[in-house]
């Protein structure tokens, strides 16, 4: 069997997804045995021209991580789409915007103003903002265009498979690679490397019927390691999040942050979470509700930590 041509790319991301690929450890050699890595900017040098020069369909599988924040991200996404037989949105940023998409609570101009003019360590009395083109004596300099909002991959190109996670866990990555190699692929558009049940299904903690009198932030209490975190008032996103990660955060006594995204059929993870925890708040009067809600710091940021690009109110519908 001919070796696969594999490309890994990072767009607007932290690099964690690439590191996660390396975290398969010695198995990376097995990957190398079955696949030629034709592009992997974080590990191997590569040029736009090299990709441009490829015939369409040269790349068998492209694992694309990171969100689409600017024109360069989009350009490469389109380029890789053209050259790849299978395009995989790899990691939460590519799947649903991820952490970078938290910026979507603001628009581009607000972001630029904040970053280039208002942060305490910035000295920018002239109020200089980045430009896409700038004439200097040496010639024209150009920068990618910074978009109004952060988008996930399928908002700019067609995506064949989704692998959620921030980052996807090495075990799940290995599963995905094996599936690709064996050709044993699920139908197009499927989410791979995550289960069809919520994290609660794999969470080993003791769960009871839920009633919450107040919510806590993680630094405020040391939760009982045996009991459901949500019942203890920690905003664990486990109930609205796909399993498959092996409940790693939970095992470290930390609540789930929701990176594996919503369950199949749920179109808005944050809204669903509001609907669920709204029901288990153990208060009655509007005043009590109000004071209980005071104990939730940044609800939108918490509930949409990884899903802003696909949120009904700010994203595009998948």
């Amino acid at each position: 069997m001919a070796k696969l041509n594999l490309a890994l790319y990072w767009a607007s991301s932290c690099g964690g997804c690439d590191v996660a690929v390396l975290d398969v450890n010695e198995k990376i050699l097995d990957i190398a045995a079955v696949a030629d890595i034709v592009l992997w900017p974080v590990a191997v040098d590569g040029k736009y021209a090299d990709i441009e020069a490829m015939e369409p369909g040269t790349i068998d599988v492209c694992l694309f991580n990171g969100a689409v924040r600017n024109s360069e991200n989009e350009h490469i996404a389109m380029l890789l789409r053209e050259k790849s037989k299978v395009m995989v949105a790899f990691g939460s940023c590519a799947v649903s915007g991820g952490i970078p998409a938290l910026a979507n609570f603001k628009e581009r101009d607000e972001v630029l103003k904040r970053v280039f003019m208002e942060t305490p360590s910035t000295v920018n009395p002239e109020g200089v903002l980045p430009l896409t083109r700038c004439e200097v004596p040496e010639g024209t300099l150009s920068l990618p265009e910074f978009y109004k909002y952060v988008h996930c991959l399928d908002q700019v190109v067609e995506v064949d498979y989704y692998v959620p996670g921030c980052p996807p866990t090495p075990q799940r990555i290995w599963d995905v690679v094996q599936a690709i190699v064996s050709g044993n692929l699920p139908p197009r558009g499927a989410t791979v490397g995550a289960t069809e049940k919520s994290l609660c299904d794999e969470c080993k903690r003791i769960k009871q019927n839920k009633k919450v009198k107040r919510f806590y932030r993680v630094h405020e209490i040391i939760p009982d390691p045996e009991r459901c975190l949500l019942e203890q008032g920690l905003l664990c996103m486990g109930p609205v999040t796909r399993g498959g990660c092996g409940a790693q955060c939970i095992s470290a006594n930390m609540p789930c942050r929701g990176c594996y995204g919503p369950l199949p059929g749920v179109i808005d993870q944050g809204a669903k979470y509001i609907s669920s925890i709204g029901s288990i708040m153990d208060v009655q009067s509007p005043e009590e509700v109000e004071s209980l809600l005071e104990t939730i710091a940044d609800p939108a940021g918490t509930f949409y930590r990884f899903g802003m690009s696909t949120a009904l109110l700010r994203g595009a519908n998948r």
């Binding site: 069809e196 609660c200 769960k207 109930p239 369950l263 029901s279």
Partner: peptide, 26 residues
């Protein structure tokens, strides 16, 4: 039941005690 993940959020909500939790199969 194929999709229920056993979070138990719903169990107490029912005013008619129509919801019960299957401890064996969660």
């Amino acid at each position: 039941k194929e999709r229920c993940s056993g979070c138990r959020i719903c169990v107490d909500l029912c005013p008619y005690s129509a919801i019960s939790f299957n401890e064996e199969f969660k």
